[in-house]
């Protein structure tokens, strides 16, 4: 589903945002991308929806080489993925129904298709009853669920979420994590960049950790932080390397 080969992103006059990243995510996987602020998580996601272009290396998403993609093809790529943000990104002057339907409108879906698919997407996030409300009438958790419903309504094979629980309380975050997990169980590949230790540790999925633009960890069933045993093991390995060098 996603392949990055030796990818670097360098902004002019600044240190590299990503350096020689190689990552492969299979279809149907659930991946958490973790790391401190400025580690490169968001840049990694932006590469996937072609908000950023790689300075070098190859980025392949759903069989498309994004490094060679032309500007006019970008909307077509984005229709094949759902994107969820920390700030929800809902259109404030549209109702819940219209917000979710909007993703179908842009691909030219007809009225009957919209009437069929929007309730299904709202049902998947448990918000069918709020379809006439405006975003400012909803709680943060509800708004994020609407954003997820909008990302899902096109039934995309890939869902990207950038800090989806960043503005939510722990209990609501658990609910969002549960919804993302359910979506993944239906076969959608899910990539979540997060700082939220609780949801990473509760789901125990693949964790890719970034630090200063590099991948420093890729655990199949990881947790947010590294266990003390692993820290100890790494420290010993590092000391051994420094002794050998001398």
């Amino acid at each position: 589903m996603i392949e990055l080969h030796d990818v670097s992103v360098i902004y002019s006059g600044a240190r590299p945002a990503l350096t020689n990243i190689s990552v492969r995510v299979e279809k149907g996987e659930f991946v958490f991308v973790v790391g401190s602020t400025g580690a490169g998580k968001s840049t990694f996601l932006k590469l996937l929806y072609r908000e950023e272009a790689a300075s070098s290396g190859t980025v392949i998403v759903a069989g498309k080489n994004l490094s060679q993609m032309r500007r006019r093809e970008v909307p077509l790529l984005r229709r094949r993925m759902g994107i969820v943000f920390q700030d929800f990104g809902l259109l404030p002057n549209k109702t819940v129904f219209e917000n979710v339907a909007f993703a179908l409108r842009v691909i030219g879906a007809g009225r009957s298709e919209i009437r069929k698919k929007v309730p299904l997407a709202l049902d998947a996030v448990g918000l069918t009853h709020r379809c006439d409300a405006f975003p400012n009438q909803l709680s943060g958790g509800e708004q994020q669920r609407i954003a997820i419903a909008r990302a899902l309504v096109n039934e995309p094979p890939l869902l990207l979420a950038d800090e989806p629980t960043g503005n939510l309380d722990p209990e609501t975050s658990r609910g969002i994590a549960e919804i993302l997990s359910q979506i993944n169980l239906r076969g959608t590949t899910v990539v979540v960049a997060t700082h939220d230790q609780q949801i990473v540790d509760s789901l125990r999925r693949r964790v890719i950790e970034f630090d200063h633009g590099r991948v420093i960890r890729d655990d199949r069933q990881g947790s947010y932080g590294v266990s003390e045993a692993v820290v100890h093991e790494r420290l010993l390995a590092s000391m051994a390397r420094s002794v050998t060098t001398r």
Partner: peptide, 16 residues
């Protein structure tokens, strides 16, 4: 501008 941004992210073409 926020609306334009959201439209871009859900795959709306520039013409749309």
């Amino acid at each position: 501008r926020k609306e334009i941004r959201i439209m871009q992210l859900v795959g709306a073409t520039p013409g749309f």
